[in-house]
Structure formats: structure tokens, C-alpha cells
Design a protein around this nucleic acid. Structure first.
Lengths: 181, 181, 181, 181
DNA sequence: TATGAATGAGACTTCATTCAT
DNA sequence: TATGAATGAAGTCTCATTCAT
């Protein structure tokens, strides 16, 4: 699985041959099939595990009792940290999106939708409590999701290294206070 | 080419067979090869044309003499409009990223990097002129790119319809003034 | 299909490679798949066609209005002729019985059962009309089926050539009159 | 070996995996190879043993000193009994005929040929002694072999249960006296 | 002696591409 | 110029067999 993650991440699902994974893992081609029934299932297993790991990373850090800006900061920081620490997984998770079969695609959509729903609810709550001014909650959700969903690109592709805590601070600052001087 | 765009967009590059494109186009399989030397080249042609169209859409609207918030607004609005009006192209451009061969990938990276460079310069100029407070220009670039690069997902996948002008106004407002009440 | 029949007949289904069929047919491996979706389907098509041909051969000759011994003679003769004239088909039809998948196997069983049912009815009618003495109809059916189902072996394997009309006459004579001197 | 017989009989040689035999036998996959050098050799061992058992069953009962009809009756009865009592073996012996390699196939052919030669000689003797009228000995051999070689089908496939002694009596009666009323 | 995880040769099947018509 | 039947390279997956434990 480790080997598969490395190769998938590097060459993409469709350009990866089972033999390459086997070689990378230092095992025989057939051995992979002892543990995964097909190439697709191998990818799916990786994705499911990744989603689970991502969920853990995200949810463990964010308690419910914080102020909105603290919450956003932790969210952003956790996401940045995950991407930075799991570059290969990140690349697979966000890049190889087109191979998922119907089932996995639906599942991934649900995951995303669920995540965004929680984010949107939590923004709406902030608005209701008066911590956030009355912006369009859906739009703000998309904005924040967008930042999270795109930050990995320079990190993973250009090997851009940035301190997660600092980046989170800055991004939260921009989101909260804007950029107008 | 129109047909190819539709099919690629719907099924993704790897799941599209040349025959399907031919059928969609109402022509023979061999005829495609009269105009494109290979499946990959067909995609590349589409992508290049798309990038060109995108560039046009983006640059035509944005004159150099505007204030920063106007500029950002136009940038966002133009992007939103492009995504909304070219859903198929958008999906290909942003989704089928993993098939590009070395050459195309490099080219796409250059395009992106170039775009971000211009964005970053223009942000830096804003900071220098004092229109923007001293945030990390690279980070802000990533944030704005992220919003642009992610907004298409709900538009294309969930068929989320939103008025480009209104969305641009809101997003610009958030970026400029933040969300704190 | 002609080529497939030859190769299947000679080497058996499991020992036949698609490439061998292609070579025998003087075409490319892939071309076979233009006309048959899989190796199994190719065999099935051959079998279905063979059964149809067999049925035709059998039924065309045997009118309903004959005496029992005439009927048996024609049955036996038609069968012998079919085996002699379609050695390859015969070998496939009666030899490669174990590869049939569930569906085809069921279908083949039905064919056989149907055939035997008709034979049994027709024997029973002979008994009822008093042309045949009161033997066990089921057993006699099995005996006659057995003769038909086994005669091909020396014909096909040992290349035993015998005049169908003569053989039919003799066999019918044995069945009708026994062998006791 | 018992396990192999059961599984081969049920699924056919080619559809049987070594692992399935191991599971059926309640032993490890590798253990089979302690006793049989290959899958094919395992089948061959089974077949050889079966032929031997068959030969025993057939020859033990049939003394040389009997009248022709007694002899045929015993032959038929012994065969029927063997099939009835060894359904799995029977199915393997008569069904999985196509997998035999050159060597085994030749051996099986010899067995069969030998058997038929003896049968034919013994028929010829009957003719010479005047117990049988002058039919074609070869053809009669094929007829009797055919009945023997086919009777197992309804027994094994349709689970047709019939008393061997009764069946033998009837079949012998038909062969000896025919069916004409 | 018994095992079963590991192996890799081998076979099926796909599909981008060609080329005779 | 347009076609689509033919092609065969390439890749997935199976399963008999091995061998370290």
C-alpha cells in the first residue's frame, strides 16, 4: 500500500502499472492480488484510508467551544498540516479524482458535501451569533473550501514549504479582516 | 472538437474512446485522425484553445488602470463567468489534470505559474501603493487562486447557478473587508 | 468461426489460445473480438449453430407418418451422417461438454432432455400402437441415445469410415430384432 | 485423493483450483504436492486408479465359461453397478476426457480399444458358435459400448436411480431379442 | 512433514491507430 | 476526403507451483 501510494502519486492512476507497484514494493505482481482484488480496489482502499486519516486530523483538533476565528484558524492549520505531511496522499486524494467509479465517486461527493455542510452550518451559526457579518454563507463556504482545496497545489507540485501555523494565522487574518489597508 | 469536449467532459479522458467521440460527432473514427494526430493531441488542442479562450476572457475585461478592488472584482467575475459559460471546458481544464504528458504538464504549469506571477505582481503593486495592507503576497495569491480554482466545483458538479456579478461582488467584498462584524 | 471450430476440435477449448484461432483464420487476434465478445461466447455461438444444424439434419428427414422401424432407421442414419460430415463440430459438441457455463449447460441439458423426451414419447406411442413390445420406454430411450451418443467416438477418433445407410440399417435391425440367432 | 475426486467431479478439471481441493481435504495447499507432483498427475492418478477399479469390477464378475446372453447381462450389470456406486469417478472418467495430455490420452485410448477388442472377440466367438446371428461384429461392439458409455449420463446428471440387475436384464433382453413385438 | 504467502508465466481482452477502399 | 474493419501492443488478472518457516 505504501508503495502504491508512492507510485500512484508520482505517475497518476492510469499511468501506473501493477508491475511498477510490485517492483516499488519489492514483491511479485501476484502478491498484490492477495490483498487487493483489483487495481481499482487498491486505489479505493487508499482513498478510503486517506479520507479517514484526513477526517481524524481535521476533527481531532477542532473543539466545538471556540470562537469563530480560532475555529477557522485551526481548520486551516489542520488542513495545511495534513497536506504538508501527506503529500503523496494529498496528490492522490485531490488529483486522481476522475478514475473513481460510480460508487466511490458518490461516496467522495457525500464526504465533500458533508464537510461543506458542517462548515456552512458553523458559518451560519457565527453569523447568527453576530461574530460574522451577514455574508452569503454558501459563498463563504465555497471560498474557504476553495482555499483549502487549492493550497496543496504549490505545496505538492512546487514543493513550497511554509509553516502551517504561520500560514493558518495569515489566511485566517485575511478571511477575518480582509486585505484593505 | 465540439464533440470531443462534450465526451471528455462527461466521461473523463481515460474513459473516453475515440469511437465515442466519432459517434458523438457523427463522423467516422478514422476522420478524427485527419485533423488530430492522436487522442492526446486532440486533448491538448482542446486545452490550448481553452487556455487561450480563458486568457482572452480574463484579460479583455481587466484594464491596467483600475483600483485594486475593482481589479479583483473583475478578475473574479470574469473567472466565474467563464466557468459558468463553459462548463465542459472547465471540467476538462481543471479535472483531467493527470493525463497530461510531460510536455503538456509543463506547459500547463507554466501557464498557471505565469498567471499567478502576474497576480502576485499586481498584488505586490497594490501593497506598495498602500491599497493593500502588508500581507504575504504569495499566500494571498494562493488564496485568490484557490477561490478561483475551486468555485467551478459546485457550479459544474452540483449545477449551482449563481449570478457572476453578484458572486464577484460578494467574494471581493470578503477578500477586501474580511468577514468580522 | 470455421477456424475456431477446427482449433477447438483439435485441441479442446481450454488448450486453445485465441491467438491460435487468429493464426488459423489468418487474421489478427483483435479481429475475433469484433465478432465475438469473448472466447466463451465464441464457443457458445459455435455450439448453438451446431445444435441448430443438428436439429435440422435430424428433423428434416423424419416425417411423422412412418412406421417405427423406418423412423428409427432414419434417426440413426441422420445422426450417423451428421457425425461423419461434421467431425469437428461433433467433437466439440460431444467432447467439450465441461466448459459450458451455467447458462449454456442448462440450455444443452434442456436440448438433450427435450430430444430424449420426444424420443421417449415416440417410443411410447410405438408401444401403445403395439409396434413395439412392452419394454421400459425410458430405458430404451437411454439405449438408443447411448448408441447415437457414442457412435461418433470411433468415427471421429479412429477415423472409422462406415456407410451411414448401411450402419443405420444394421443398427436398426439389431434394435428391432435383437441379435439372438 | 478422495477430496480431489469430489471436487473434480463437481466442477470439472479446469474449473477446479488446487486450493479448493486442499480445502475440501482439510489440508494445506502445499501438502498436495507432497503426494502428487502436479495437478495433472493428480488427475492421472485418479484416472488410473479408476480404470483399475473399473477393470476389476468388470472382470471379476465375468467368467469365461458362460453363455453369451449371461455374459452380456453380467457385463451390463457390472457396468451399471460401477456407475451407480462411483458417480464421482464415473463423471471424471467419462466427462473430463479433453484434458488428458498426449500420454494419458493414448493410454486411455488403448484401454478403451483393448476393452472393445475383447468385447469384439467375444462377440465374434458368439457368432462363430452360432449363439449370435451374423451381424457386423464391429458395429455391435460400438452399439454395446455406446449403451455402456452413455447410461451414466442420466444416472449421474439427473440422479436417475435404477436397479442395476433389472436394468441389465432389460437391456440384455433388448439387445438379444430386439424390440419388435 | 505440513503449510500458505509469495510468485510470475501466461492468457484474455481492450482500444488507439492504420490503411485499403 | 472519409471510412471502419483490422490490428497488435500493452496491461490486468489468474492460479499452479514453490519454498522458507
Amino acid at each position: 500500500m505504501e508503495a502504491a501510494i508512492r507510485v500512484f502519486s508520482q505517475k497518476g492512476y492510469h499511468h501506473t502499472k501493477m508491475e511498477e507497484i510490485a517492483i516499488e514494493a519489492g514483491i511479485g505482481k501476484g502478491t498484490i492480488y492477495e490483498y487487493f482484488s483489483s487495481k481499482l480496489q487498491l486505489l479505493q482502499e487508499i482513498m478510503k484510508r486517506s479520507f479517514r486519516l484526513y477526517e481524524q486530523t481535521m476533527s481531532s483538533d477542532i473543539s466545538n467551544s471556540m470562537f469563530i476565528n480560532e475555529k477557522i484558524k485551526m481548520l486551516v492549520e489542520a488542513h495545511f498540516r495534513f497536506c504538508q505531511e501527506n503529500k503523496d496522499l494529498t496528490r492522490i486524494l485531490f488529483w486522481d479524482t476522475d478514475i473513481m467509479d460510480e460508487e466511490l465517486r458518490d461516496w467522495a461527493c457525500q464526504q465533500r458535501t458533508g464537510k461543506e455542510k458542517r462548515l456552512q452550518d458553523f458559518i451560519q451559526a457565527g453569523i447568527d451569533r453576530g461574530e460574522i457579518r451577514a455574508v452569503d454563507a454558501k459563498l463563504l463556504t465555497v471560498v474557504i473550501s476553495g482555499v483549502l482545496g487549492s493550497i496543496w497545489v504549490p505545496m505538492v507540485i512546487e514543493d513550497w514549504i511554509i509553516d502551517a501555523a504561520f500560514a493558518a494565522e495569515q489566511v485566517t487574518d485575511i478571511i477575518m479582516n480582509g486585505i484593505k489597508s
